[in-house]
Simulated assay, not measured.
Amino acid sequence: MRVAIAGAGAVGRSIAGELLENGHEVLLIDKAPTAISVERVPQAEWLLADACEITSLDEAALQRCNVVIAATGDDKVNLVVSLLAKTEYGVPRVVARVNNPKNEWLFNESWGVDVAVSTPRLMSALVEEAVSVGDLVRLLRFSHGDANLVELTLPEESALAGTQVGNVEWPQDTSLVTIIRGTRVLTPTRDDSLEAGDELLFVAAQAREEQLEDLLSVRREDASS
């Protein structure tokens, strides 16, 4: 897979390093000469250019990329790069970094963004995930279909503890994708039973999140008694 990353700062270089370790081709683009540190990620291709300029993206051959990641520290730049990648070059997958949570509402398919990653929101979600049991935590938002990656740790008092996955009437537009049980990562089947303490990851429509939380967490009448 070929990936272009706009923004060769600490975030962009870290992403590049991970992708290269997984066997992907990576092109790092940045307009600041001081950001071009080939020795830090020598396996990557480097381009000194403004990723907001069509001529630069032509030089980067963006049409050959499977994924574009807009990872600069400027939300305006990330939106422009995302829009150009999607509309001018037809890049199948565009991922954009959100620096200011107030701008998160802009990072959607109208601007060519398939996945928006808000660093402040993600850090907050990870803190919540570490301390919350029985509460639904939103980890990541997907632009298409208005869906989110959400997590809930099944509490001891949940009515679903001990229930087989196939016997649960999950809300519409909701999919259980992973069960994390201790050190194990399970791909759920219909015959797997849910256990208290399981960390459940779902892709769910935003409109179904409350319904999903009510289904999995402590019953409210039990909690109030």
Rank of each mutant, 00 (worst) to 15 (best):
Q43D: 14
L79N: 02
A204P: 08
V81R: 01
V98A: 08
G23N: 09
I5A: 03
N148F: 05
A8E: 04
N78M: 05
A205D: 10
W170V: 07
V115Q: 05
L176A: 02
R64I: 00
E221G: 05
D58I: 09
R138F: 00
L152E: 01
S224N: 11
A44I: 03
S110Y: 08
A49V: 14
P33A: 05
G145V: 06
V168Q: 04
Q206F: 01
A61C: 13
V38I: 11
R184V: 00
A32K: 11
P171M: 09
F142I: 01
G17Q: 13
H144K: 14
T55F: 04
E45C: 11
C52D: 10
S56T: 12
N108R: 04
L83M: 07
W105A: 12
L47Q: 10
S124Y: 00
T87H: 13
M1W: 12
D74S: 02
N167R: 11
K86F: 06
T178N: 09
L152D: 01
H144E: 12
T87D: 13
Y89T: 08
D146V: 08
A223I: 05
E59Q: 11
V94K: 01
I54V: 12
L106Y: 11
A85Y: 06
D192P: 02
L176T: 01
V91T: 04
